[in-house]
Amino acid sequence: MRFLLFILICAGLILTAESCKKECHDRSNPDCENYDPCYGKQPLTADFETFEVSIFPDNWIPYSTDTLASSDVFFRAKEENVEYEWTVGSETITTRSFTRKNFPVGVRIPITLKVKRKTDFGCFPTDSVVAQTRNIFVIDGYENSKVAGYYQGYHTNNAADTFTVCIYIPEYSMNPPHEKTTISGLMNISTCADNKINVSGSESVGYKQYTFLSQDGFCHGAWGRVRVDSAFMGHIRIDYSYLKDLTDIKSQVDKTFLGKRIN
């Protein structure tokens, strides 16, 4: 009787184990019936990112763009731990990322990346070497940044109150007097003469982004970041802050303006 009971218990354990095995559906687990040795692996890509180099990195959020306002450009391949061969003009670079300066403005410049890795015959037998060429374009003048213009919008804490903001970025000149970048209509407070933020020299202009600091503490020392929505180029977001009391860092006020281009 005990022997029969032992046999029944063993049979039950075997059936349970078989049942558990059948219920295994993890494609990354070699013990599962649906195991896929290529699961999670990706084909080799020569895609890469290009970033404007900001001279004032505070508040700057890097974003990849083929059209740039800066002639200093940071390049980075998306693929990691492979062999790299970049072609930039007559130069060859073999690192994953690098920075190059003083690209000419107003012309399309081809950038080629070739990547290589050991052939994965089981999953991707034909992609041991791939290459891609893209053009970058540096705009001729900061005034051509997508940030500049008139925008109708609102502060996110009061969407019913709509108003117009103007971002003016002057044409750059080597000779004084130098015009200042201005942001008009954003802050309706007494220390902003004519409701206008005059930006100090601490600014960074990108094709789709702009960071600023108000001049000499005016407008309660306002500082912030302007970004154009990459998916909807007519939409803008301004995240900015100021101090109610310039002597008290704890008096900081944070605001966000959302707008749509109207010019």
Rank of each mutant, 00 (worst) to 15 (best):
E143C: 03
F163S: 08
T191D: 14
T256N: 02
G89K: 02
K114L: 02
E85V: 08
S54A: 15
N157L: 09
F74P: 04
G201Q: 12
R261G: 05
P125S: 15
E171M: 09
F121I: 13
N195M: 04
N29I: 04
G106K: 02
A231F: 06
D120Y: 02
G106S: 06
Y207G: 08
K146H: 10
A148T: 04
S54L: 09
D58P: 02
V82P: 00
G221E: 06
E49I: 05
F98G: 06
C20F: 11
C123D: 07
F137N: 09
A11M: 13
V147F: 00
V82T: 05
N188Q: 13
K196Q: 12
S200Y: 00
S54I: 04
N81I: 01
C10P: 06
F51V: 01
E143N: 14
R100M: 15
P177D: 13
S204L: 07
P125A: 12
T92M: 10
S241Q: 14
S90M: 02
E80K: 15
L243C: 06
N34H: 11
Y172R: 13
R225N: 10
H25W: 13
C38H: 05
H155V: 02
Y172Q: 13
T95C: 15
F124Y: 15
N135V: 01
I238D: 07
K180W: 04
Y151M: 07
Y210K: 09
